[in-house]
Structure formats: structure tokens, C-alpha cells
Design a protein around this nucleic acid. Structure first.
Lengths: 211, 211
DNA sequence: CGTCTAATTGAAGCTGATCAACGGCAGTGG
DNA sequence: CCACTGCCGTTGATCAGCTTCAATTAGACG
């Protein structure tokens, strides 16, 4: 729980008692756009995708949350509704803290708001970068970029995509067909190899980087 | 100064004494990507554009700051470098507060960090929405959306674009040529009228909204 | 008044979306 | 254990929206 990492064990235990736990199966919706947003959601285990739906029905993947990630902070201060959807991608444990209780925590432990500010900052920086990439570069280079970043996360040149290609497409602002084609093209050029389904082997990282 | 709005007058006066003032002319660079980020920047008067440059040289406009807006918060906690550029679009007054002094302020007046959190939240929500729009809808509908929002800000159906079309293009993730064409098309359809340069008259707001 | 940048307009080309059909894999139920 | 049924992913063909390049005009500012 990075949010509470600076607290002592007994303090963290107090938080345990405040938290409400929920379990979701793969495919289940955790919240939908329009739902009142009155709690902070922390992913205890599993994987959650957070996305928006455009008026034309197209999906945009915003965040992929895994253990320790959280969401729903935006309106922990002012009342508001969700503007995105959250869906479990696998069996997932969620902890929730209500707004009033979270506000009390923040007052008691100011370090929490600092952690929050840091997390917000990271997210902003990340989104700014993604916005720029999506608007100014080709699908090919966005995909290349994603592969490099993902390899860095896994600390391995051989990894399994943590996402369905369908979702990866909406993350990169494109379609599954295009992803499929571009990956095939990269493989043909010898830059990557697709072993199993979703399993990717990077052969020439520098080539990827200069796309 | 929305950041300090909850403080008393004398407290705000104290802040006055901490602040470093700078003046920039139209076109001047306030900071560039790679510069060390060690101060919070507040726009006292004027207009500032914050943008990123992609590897291919293309520009992406992220924020347009006017009086009272601020930037540079992302690294008020951890040392880091700017990843964007800021440029004055007209004669502009800037107030700066160094990291250590700002941190002291935050400790003394916790309301400031709440204000910061709120502002971060707004920015995140806004960016998420923009990312979705850019990735999932046509230039036409993004432009229509922008016109509606801008009219709402000015509280008038007849307003002057606060931006050069060139910059508007990078804001909407397209090119000046396309903006020009789309505006001409909207005018031909009778939905808007372009009176002076940059002066826009909305004739049929509902038509814009359903694009 | 002259210069420089912004904006417009035209023509051409390309990237990527869309539509449709097929193959494959996984989970389900008999 | 096998067959059935969806969904995911792939591949092909077509098409449109937008970018790009180039040339011209308009506008801003000293």
C-alpha cells in the first residue's frame, strides 16, 4: 500500500479496520460512469482496467491497476460522479475507504496527502506524455514505445503482454487490427519475435527505440 | 490566487514577501524541457502556453495558463526536470516560489495542499477527457466541442479565440490547415460565422453539440 | 510602408479505420 | 472427454479522413 507506506504497523492496522472489502470476478464492473463517487478504491490483488466510453461507443483505456494501485481520489474532497468505468480483468480483491473516513485519515496523517500529491503528479506527467505521443506520433512508434516500457517493467526482453490486444489497442488509441498488423510487421523485420500468444521477445531494442 | 484563497490577508502578504517576480515579453521562453524544476510558477498577469515537443519536432499544447494559474508543482516534492516548455504569449508577470519555501508554506497552511490536490484532480479529469476525445473522435467533433466550451467560458456565443489557430491545432491534436478547413465547413453549413480574424459567432449551438 | 508570420486554399498521398470472413483458443456443458 | 459456443485475434480489401507540400493571401507590428 504505497499510500500508507510511511505509517507504522499499528497505524496501518487501524486502517485495516476502516476498510471495506469486496471481491469481484473477471469481467465484473466495479463502478460505472455516472455512479456517485464516495470512496477511495485500492486494489488489494488482481487487475482492474479503468476506461472511458466516448459518445460513439469507442473505448479508451486510461489506467491498468494492479496490486497496490488506487483510484477514485479525484472526488475525495468534492462530491462528484465517476466519469470512467472500472472493470475487473481477473478475480480481484478491492478495499474501499469512504470519503469521511479518508478525510479523517488525511488530517491525522498529513503524510498521506503528500503521497497522494506525488501520485497525482506521476499520473499527470504520464498522461501528458501519452497525450503528446498519441497526438503527434504514428501507431508504430507508440507501439514500439509501449514494448520498450513494458520490457523495462518486467526487466526482461521476453515477457507476456499484461493485456488483451483488444485492450492494448484502446490504450494506444488504435484498433486491434492495426496492432496485429504492426506486430506482424515488427516480427518480419526481425525486431521482435512472437512466441506464444501475447508472449513477446524483443530482439533489437535499439531499433524499437528509434521508431 | 486560488492556491492561497483561504488564507487571511496578512498571511497572503507574507507570501508576497517570499515571492520572486519576473517579467517576460511575448514570445519569451519561461522554462524549457530539461531545465531543473525548483520553483512553483504562478501567472500574475498575461498568458502562458505550456507544451511538449515530440521527437519528430511536433508540438503538443498541454495547458494555456492565464492570471492565477500555476505550474511546476509536479516536482515540488522530489527533485526533477521539466518535461515541457513554457512560453509567454503576451507580456506576462510571473511569481515564483522556491521549493523549500513552498514546502514550509504547505506545512504551515495545510489548506494549500488541499487546494493543490483539488487542482491536480481537475487537471487529471480534464486530461483524461481530452485523451479520450483525441483518440476516439474526429477532428470535427473535437473542434465543435472546443467551440462550445470556449463559448461557455466567455458566457457568450460571440467570442474571440484566445489562441492562434496554429496553437489551437496542436491543442486539438491536428494541423492548422485542417482547422481552417473545418471552420470554413462549419460556416458554410451555417452553424457558425467567422466575423473578424479569430472572432467566432455561434449560430446553432445544438448542432455543434451533437457532432 | 515593408517585412514576417499566420492563415487559407488546392492537390496528392498515406496511414489507419472499417467491414467482412476465417481460424484458434478457452470455457461450458453434456 | 468431446463437442459446442463465444470471443479473440488474424488477414485481406476497401475507403476516408487527415497530413503534407506548395503557393498565395491576409494580417500584425515595428
Amino acid at each position: 500500500m504505497p499510500l500508507f507506506s510511511q505509517l507504522t504497523e499499528s497505524e496501518q492496522a487501524t486502517i485495516e479496520s476502516i476498510v471495506h472489502r469486496h471481491h469481484y470476478q473477471a469481467g465484473e464492473t466495479i463502478f460505472a460512469a455516472g455512479d456517485p463517487m464516495d470512496a477511495l478504491m485500492i486494489v488489494a490483488s488482481g487487475q482492474v482496467k479503468v476506461f472511458q466510453l466516448a459518445a460513439n461507443g469507442k473505448e479508451q483505456l486510461l489506467y491498468l491497476l494492479t496490486t497496490g494501485d488506487f483510484d477514485g481520489e479525484t472526488a475525495l474532497f468534492s462530491q462528484a460522479n465517476h466519469n470512467s468505468f472500472a472493470q475487473a480483468l481477473m478475480p480481484t480483491q478491492i478495499c474501499q475507504i469512504n470519503r469521511p473516513e479518508f478525510q479523517r485519515l488525511m488530517q491525522k496523517y498529513p503524510t498521506i496527502s503528500l503521497n497522494l500529491l506525488n501520485e497525482f503528479g506521476k499520473r499527470l506527467t504520464d498522461l501528458e506524455k501519452r497525450t503528446t505521443k498519441t497526438a503527434t506520433t504514428s501507431v508504430e512508434s507508440r507501439l514500439a514505445d509501449y514494448l520498450v516500457e513494458t520490457a523495462a517493467q518486467f526487466e526482461s526482453q521476453n515477457f507476456k503482454l499484461p493485456l488483451k490486444k483488444k485492450d492494448l489497442a484502446t490504450y494506444l488509441g488504435t484498433t486491434p487490427e492495426t496492432i496485429s498488423r504492426k506486430l506482424a510487421e515488427l516480427e518480419q523485420r526481425g525486431i521482435i519475435t512472437q512466441t506464444g500468444s501475447k508472449q513477446i521477445q524483443i530482439n533489437d531494442e535499439s531499433a524499437l527505440e528509434l521508431l
